[in-house]
């Protein structure tokens, strides 16, 4: 099993945000996480990626069978966890090219590999740029600086393509994209899919799931996974709205 989350409780400044999450992701799977605003989806993604400022009060996060709670975020990334940020950060003065090269080389170093030869790196950039239909101009610029909302999201997928992670968590990568960009991003994710990796997409829109077909859909509500099912759950959710979820949870 690639990712196993058991009874995860997380607080921010003493306020409990995640209240007993259980989630299992296997290689080759695509999972979708849906749920109303402020319910803890990004919190879950950030905690898996190792962001500071969260207190795990209970539970476990196992990645490839290893407890990763004490692992710094860079080691998690080197182990293959990638987070597509809901709000990608602008880094003036650091060019995309340098950023990706540094990133790739540190990951390679972690795995005992030599730095990527310049030629190979350039070829890879060209190939991945094509995959997400990103223009050369963007990669010559500073990371996300002055990028439009949609360009920032595309850039997340471009980075994912460059780094080829084992587990990609894409936090609302679809929001703010026009229809063409949505198709491009979804295509990119689909092309990167192998039997050895897995993707977790966090989304508000059933529409994305027409392109990225999930094996499982989970509904997160008030810090808990209250419903899990196949892709038809997303449709049902869209039809009935979150009030339905509320009633379902109250029933139990």
């Amino acid at each position: 099993m690639l990712l196993q989350i058991k009874n995860l409780h997380v607080s921010i400044n003493g306020k409990e945000i995640l209240r007993g999450i259980n989630l299992e992701v296997n290689k080759g799977e695509v999972h979708a996480i849906m749920g109303p605003n402020g319910t803890g989806k990004s919190t879950l993604a950030n905690v898996i990626a190792g962001k500071e400022g969260y207190e795990i009060t209970q539970g476990e996060i196992l990645y490839n069978g290893k407890d990763i709670q004490k692992m710094p975020p860079e080691v998690r990334a080197q182990e293959g966890i990638f987070l597509g940020f809901q709000y990608p950060v602008e880094i003036p003065g650091v060019s995309m090219t340098n950023f990706m090269r540094t990133s790739l080389n540190e990951i390679r170093k972690y795995h005992g590999q030599e730095p990527i030869p310049a030629k190979e790196f350039l070829a890879r950039m060209a190939e991945k740029k094509e995959l997400v239909e990103i223009t050369a101009k963007l990669t010559n610029r500073s990371v996300n600086e002055g990028f439009s909302g949609g360009e920032k999201k595309k850039n997340e997928i471009y980075q994912m393509a460059m780094l080829e992670p084992q587990l990609a968590i894409l936090d609302e990568t679809d929001s703010g994209l026009d229809i063409d960009a949505l198709r491009i991003v979804a295509n990119g994710v689909n092309k990167l899919k192998t039997s050895e990796n897995a993707t977790v997409v966090i989304t508000h829109y059933q529409r994305l799931l027409d392109y990225i077909v999930p094996d499982f859909v989970h509904v997160l509500f008030e810090g808990k996974v209250v419903l899990s099912g196949g892709k038809e759950l997303a449709l049902e959710l869209e039809e009935k709205g979150y009030d339905w979820i509320k009633k379902e949870t109250e029933k139990r």
């Binding site: 710094p72 990334a77 602008e90 880094i91 003036p92 990133s103």
Partner: peptide, 27 residues
């Protein structure tokens, strides 16, 4: 938030700090 973003891409904390400082001076 920039530090976390950089570290999430596999770059060590020291190097992430260094990268940000270097970028700052690079202007």
């Amino acid at each position: 938030s920039a530090l976390f973003y950089i570290r999430q891409r596999g770059i060590s904390e020291d190097n992430a700090r260094m990268l940000l400082m270097y970028a700052f001076a690079a202007e």
